[in-house]
Design a protein around this nucleic acid. Structure first.
Lengths: 204, 204
DNA sequence: TTACAAACCAAGCGCTTGCTTGGTATTGTC
DNA sequence: GACAATACCAAGCAAGCGCTTGGTTTGTAA
């Protein structure tokens, strides 16, 4: 199952907005602006201008500005969880699964959903307590994928360190790539980067 | 030269504010609030209340709110650069130096200056273009320390991966610890964590 | 054509924000 | 004890913020 198919099925289930719809376009622009300027520095007037409507008209689609931020985050997690699930299913051994996860997460961070992923990393403090809990719940599903594989590797003896710690180090290292990795310039492909990460863990 | 001595000499040179002074207390409270709520969500009234003065009185010490953020960042980098310098000087081999750097950075992130370091990681987008350039310049000095050691290890053959990439992965992994590592609860000491990081790089 | 909902506009309200102002204590110095 | 300089207060201004309101246009289906 390729990436487009996964996206389409999520759209069909109403778990992710169609990029062609008004809502989808708004969320994409919101992710771009939130990443570029930060959530607080982005005004509802900025958001409206980015999609060519009046600021008041935003509130026909979302009740509050924060709801827009939450939607960006929730839909991004949903999409990436599904993508990771699929990437893992096409791998057999735990080693291969880990490589698939690293590769998929790098793709999430540096590919199409990159801007939204950056928002997820940097803007969670702007969520209300309630929204934060909701997002964290979704993230737990996502994290469980990682821990299953890392725990498996630990049991096989392929991994020495604690799976929880390794995952946390990886979270930091991988999400930080968003601040420096530019695949378009410089010879380092996403595959090379995946290799380096796997090698760093002594699992190549 | 111990940590207190280093701090004292920086204070004497007017590169870092005395924690006892009004300015120093304000910067510490600012770091706490900026980390807790984010720079944008922290108002000058919050800041003033935290040190027990009126909001207008802040502007006797700083010309703008942004200047407070910049001061938090600049002083933190200055202090930590000096601490890292010292930690490195008391190590002989490049392996030991790397361990000293990792240990010192973990201490920066999770010790006294932890709140300010988190601000440095998460709030740089709230700086004006000019301030950002100023902060980046200071950071370059700091980063040069790391690259010297990592390049040395590469030349010795102890490191396979690219020093720049390793440093960037480490930056992400180490600064991310601020979001999860709680030395006070749980058996993992800062030394244990340093061990795990060094081991992860195959340099233990 | 009619009916109705969804999508949007124009205007602006009420509040909070960073910062200014004019004046008053407090402190250090000779 | 005079006298600055420093540190602060009380009050409030102008601008920008998220969001609301009442009304108009657009799309859809009978």
């Amino acid at each position: 199952m390729n990436q487009d198919k996964i996206l389409q099925s999520l759209v069909a289930e109403n778990l992710v907005s169609d990029l062609e719809s008004a809502r989808g376009r708004l969320l994409r622009e919101a992710a771009r602006l939130f990443r570029e300027k930060g959530y607080e520095r982005t005004t509802v007037r900025d958001l409206a201008a980015a999609v060519g409507i009046q600021s008041g008209s935003l509130f026909h689609h979302f009740r509050t500005k924060e709801e827009i931020l939450k939607a960006v985050m929730v839909e991004t997690i949903r999409l990436n969880t599904a993508l990771m699930q699929a990437a893992m299913n096409s791998a057999d051994s735990n080693r291969e699964k880990l490589r698939a996860l690293v590769s998929a997460e790098l793709e999430s961070i540096n590919g199409q959903t990159g801007e939204a992923m950056a928002v997820l990393v940097f803007e969670w403090r702007s969520l209300s307590e309630a929204s934060r809990a909701e997002v964290l719940e979704l993230r737990d599903i996502y994290e469980a994928l990682w821990l299953d594989v890392l725990t498996g590797l630990k049991e096989e003896g392929a991994l020495v360190a604690d799976p929880f710690i390794v995952r946390r180090m990886l979270t930091g290292a991988l999400s930080w790539t968003v601040t420096w990795y530019r695949p378009e310039r410089g010879g380092l492909t996403q595959n090379d980067l995946t290799d380096q990460v796997v090698a760093m863990l002594g699992l190549s």
